[in-house]
Design a binder for these strands. Structure first.
Lengths: 229, 229
DNA sequence: ACAAAAAGAGAGCAGTGCTCTTGCTTTTTG
DNA sequence: CAAAAAGCAAGAGCACTGCTCTCTTTTTGT
């Protein structure tokens, strides 16, 4: 074990170790079976010692949720960043495939984040920011298209959509996307995660044979729907 | 003289009471907080007594899952059955709205069924049957349309789709729907539940202002997509 | 060098799922 | 119709959990 230089560093290191250990156990057992005592045992420590770093189990879970959002977000950003900005089709495919692949590789973390929320748990602000990252990747691809192919906003559509959307928020990330396409965009976002959840949680059993192929099919259609290729 | 079977009746009644009590607590606390001991306490009984009726906590949860599927299925069937069979648009709207309303009225039961699955839990066969009910309502509406407006199956589409779908299974409930529309149908199904999950689990926060209106918008578009109106 | 702050250990409380034994009641059967 | 079998409830108990409290050890700033 390396000797940490300062207490602050040691503390940060300890927090990382706890989270890493917890993540390891999470991947084996799932969120509801994650036990603070087992994390401590795994680290050759007392459970009470962990309470110096996380006030309770929920706080640890929140930290894991935050990490999961950021990991998924960063993975998607990185994967998509490699593709030429003008190649909208490939960007869309790469981004959505990365989301699915990440979910399959981290099923319990995906479930933690996109499955049923912990009862009584309310997402703190930082979580919301982290949660936005994946979504923004998809949004940026769509927006880039309409930035390059400017489309006039239809006032009546704008007005109608503004009644059920938080238009200001959506336009913060997709300023060039007309209302009509915002609706389709949010729909595509919903469907991508709906797909992944259905696949992961077993609802496609007896319906889908080749998930990979069907996912590509769906995602290609969605790309057409939102008008980016 | 009929031989007395009060014991059998009593047993069934007891099972129903346990489930009802559990459901009540579930609605208050959520699945992961549901405690067998608390159910027993609520019934003025010992926890060990409950083990005569359910071998373990998971078995009780499975029973609740089964009931939830059937309740959602029956609600949707009943609501849709009232509408004239020829009025496809209304049937579609009523069915999908019923699904959403049921979810909002029974959030914890919805989460139990469509949220993250219990770790290590594998759905028994009866569950699969019950799970099919809602889906079949949607499928039947689509199929009814293509039964009335027969559409030739495009062999190349059929072949392509058969590679990722379990076509035999899907055609069992939707024999008249061409492959192309099966893809869109499954997509619509995914999107409806993706929407409800996103709404219920808080992922539409900051994006959607009026869920009711947006849901109608989405569901109307889906109806057009699958070609039934 | 020393007091203050931080961290860990250990005991303990209340809660959980689940098992086993012990009596009691109902049903089945010889 | 009584005896045997089966069903049911209760209570004690085990191993686990989250979490708190107190006490001891280690580290740090002055």
């Amino acid at each position: 074990m390396e000797k940490p230089r300062t207490r602050k560093v040691a503390r940060e290191l300890q927090i990382q170790t706890i989270k890493a250990t917890a993540r390891r156990l999470l991947d084996q057992r799932g969120a509801s079976e994650l036990s603070l005592r087992e994390v401590a045992r795994e680290m050759n420590q007392t459970s009470s010692a962990l309470y110096r770093y996380f006030a309770n189990r929920d706080e640890l879970l929140t930290a894991l949720i935050l990490d999961a959002y950021n990991d998924l977000g960063a993975s998607t950003e990185d994967a998509e960043a490699v593709v030429a900005r003008s190649n909208r089709r490939e960007r869309w495919l790469v981004a959505t495939r990365t989301i699915r692949r990440w979910a399959l590789q981290h099923p319990h973390e995906y479930a933690l984040v996109y499955g049923s929320p912990i009862p009584g748990y309310h997402a703190p602000v930082e979580t919301i920011v982290a949660a936005t990252r994946v979504t923004n990747v998809l949004g940026r691809i769509i927006n880039d298209h309409f930035q390059e192919h400017p489309t006039a906003f239809d006032p009546s559509s704008e007005k109608r959509v503004a009644e059920f959307f938080e238009l200001e928020n959506l336009r913060f990330f997709m300023p060039n996307v007309p209302a009509e396409m915002l609706v389709k965009g949010i729909g595509a976002w919903t469907q991508v995660f709906g797909f992944v959840s259905f696949e992961l949680f077993g609802h496609y059993e007896n319906s889908v044979r080749d998930f990979e192929a069907y996912f590509d099919e769906v995602v290609t259609r969605l790309g057409h729907d939102v008008g980016i290729f």
